[in-house]
Design a protein around this nucleic acid. Structure first.
Lengths: 234, 234
DNA sequence: CGTATTATTGACTCCATTCAAAGATAGTGG
DNA sequence: CCACTATCTTTGAATGGAGTCAATAATACG
């Protein structure tokens, strides 16, 4: 993979990515060390479990999944990452990645290289705080997922759809219509459900006129009712 | 609660707490801002959900639980914290705590105050890295829990016992005999199981001579066999 | 010593899984 | 462009693991 210099100040993600809330000088400083990698295709590894930590990544376009493997060869999809979101934190503590990141579709991303991070900590306390903020945010999401994992199948799937919708909205995409770049298998894996259960529930949601499903395209028809399904959460 | 000045350099937790791997000068710098709070009792709140973030805490003695509440009044125990472990990260991103922390038994802790953190980031990149390391560590644990939440009851309980044992060992406590400061209810809540299931499984583990249970005292008799139960994990 | 909380044990029920088979979709090469 | 294949999705029927309900026993606590 080749690296190219990027400019954060004219990036289309400027106010949803790292620099959010930083001064122009600070952004210029970041620009100096941020690199962009070229395009990946569905199934390509962004990094593998055990890979040396090379930095925090920001998704510019496309999406990715974080995957942990147990020693029976089962994949566990821990997280889905959308444009403007950061990944790589799983490599922060041990210099090695604790799980793999895999492209779900054609995607591009930027890198905040590990070797310049210490220097950034010293020069840009604002960035440091922002990174902590982001990592705290990720932890809260994990907590939510953990609470969710104890809830019945219907709630899990409803929450999954709502959460995707809200995250897409936050990034300026349509929150009511989107394409899932995941198979039923992958959704089920992520939520701890059998793929058949996912299929049945999507059908049920459609029958109840909460959503419209066309293969991997989802149209949310009644967000209110969908949210009612997870009354007990949040 | 009253705060008192502490010295990190002669703390009994010196090499398992924050300062691990920092220079003497750096430790002295931390000492200047770290405060200690007085003793809490079982059931006391360390902080509540929604409380303003006041800093990262380090447990000196005793244990605590992190609890999230859904809006039906159900508690969800997200994590158990042991001596030498850090908490408070859930308040880092939004300046407000995302969950509550409650003492499980008599306990004491130190505080790295929020208002001195920016200053520390600038002066002590080593500490910043250490904090990131710790927060990354916590995220890996969360990932493990997430993977675990999809596994059958037996594996979840086995993993819970093994994980406690290993964490206690790392901190210099006995890894084969310890007191659970949790009720069956709380264990079940944490693992997403009914309290009856926890009771039945502890009995089963005892019948299989993996452990010895005496109320809340646990003695691990055959760690190897216990670990076999979770072949598929880690 | 008596009361409240916590733990054990059994019987029954149900949600989600597994197994199985058929149908739809996407991608490939002739 | 169509046929062919691999992959993914839907749907039904049967099974089982863990939950719920209920009653008793043990422990902790004032």
């Amino acid at each position: 993979m080749t690296l190219t210099q990027v400019s954060c100040s004219n990036c289309s993600l400027d106010n949803i990515c790292l620099p959010r809330g930083l001064s122009q000088t600070e952004i210029d400083n970041i620009s100096k060390v941020v690199k962009a990698r070229k395009t990946l295709q569905r199934g390509d590894f962004i990094y593998r479990e055990g890979d040396h930590f090379k930095g925090i990544l920001a998704i510019k376009s496309g999406s990715a999944k974080l995957v942990a493997n147990d020693n029976h060869g089962n994949e566990h999809i821990l997280n889905i990452l959308l444009p403007g979101e950061l990944l790589g934190f799983d490599g922060l503590s041990r210099e090695k990645h604790g799980c793999a990141a895999i492209a779900l579709e054609t995607m591009t991303f930027c890198i905040l290289p590990a070797d310049s991070m210490d220097q950034l900590f010293q020069n840009l306390p604002g960035l440091t705080r922002e990174l902590f903020r982001h990592s705290g945010e990720k932890m809260l999401e994990d907590k939510n997922q953990l609470v969710l994992s104890k809830r019945p199948a219907e709630e899990r799937l409803a929450y999954f759809l709502i959460s995707l919708s809200e995250r897409l909205k936050r990034r300026g995409f349509s929150s009511s219509e989107f394409k899932l770049s995941l198979t039923r298998q992958e959704i089920g894996n992520h939520l701890g459900l059998a793929l058949e259960t996912v299929s049945r529930l999507l059908k049920k949601f459609q029958d109840d006129e909460l959503i419209e499903v066309q293969n991997r395209f989802i149209k949310i028809k009644n967000l209110g009712l969908l949210k009612n399904l997870l009354q007990p959460l949040v």
